[in-house]
């Protein structure tokens, strides 16, 4: 079994196993890794090497997708610490948070009735992003040590709520723009 294919994503990128990372540094490492393994570098190699190159490039792409996304990176780090979060795991005990989600969804549901739907949607998107960023920085703190893992899991679940909401905002935006132009 190939060692780099089984390495965890942080090890693969030679990064410390921690939540906080610098995006430009991650990008540079990604480009360097792809320079090394990408199938274009093996266009004239044997079928065997080309297969391996494709597997490695695929693995590095997957790792990069996870590491560059604040939510997926958080989930991945928790998984490495033995706290895997299932896709369907959504229950949340914080009534205040759930109330807020319901309110935001109501706003989203009424966007079409607004005078300027696109502008109203833009306002909503900004609010969602601000809340998401706040959770992200809380998560960075919670993941600094192993002591606050439960808190970290709860933050990741909250971020997932916002991510879904954000996706719906984007879908509506696409629909509105398509209707408008």
């Amino acid at each position: 079994m190939s060692s780099t294919l089984t390495k965890n994503y942080f090890e693969l990128f030679s990064l410390p196993q921690q939540y906080v990372l610098e995006r430009s540094d991650l990008d540079a490492r990604y480009r360097k890794l792809q320079h090394t393994v990408h199938p274009d570098r093996y266009a004239r190699a044997s079928d065997q090497e080309r297969r391996l190159s494709m597997q490695q490039a695929t693995h590095i792409n997957e790792a990069y997708q996870v590491l560059k996304d604040p939510l997926r990176r958080g989930r991945y780090l928790l998984e490495l610490r033995g706290h895997a979060i299932e896709d369907q795991q959504t229950t949340h005990q914080d009534p205040e948070f759930l109330m807020q989600q319901i309110e935001l969804r109501e706003v989203l549901g009424e966007i079409r009735q607004q005078d300027d739907p696109l502008q109203a949607l833009d306002r909503l998107a900004r609010e969602i992003l601000a809340q998401y960023r706040a959770l992200e920085s809380d998560l960075a703190q919670a993941l600094e040590t192993d002591a606050e893992t439960e808190q970290a899991v709860s933050l990741v679940l909250k971020m997932q709520y916002f991510m879904r909401l954000q996706n719906e905002v984007q879908e509506l935006e696409a629909d509105l723009e398509d209707e408008l132009y």
């Binding site: 190939s2 060692s3 780099t4 890794l33 320079h35 090394t36 393994v37 090497e49």
Partner: peptide
């Protein structure tokens, strides 16, 4: 396999 892994390590 060993060669490619070494290349990756070298890159990083």
């Amino acid at each position: 396999d060993r060669r490619m892994n070494a290349n990756i390590r070298k890159a990083m």
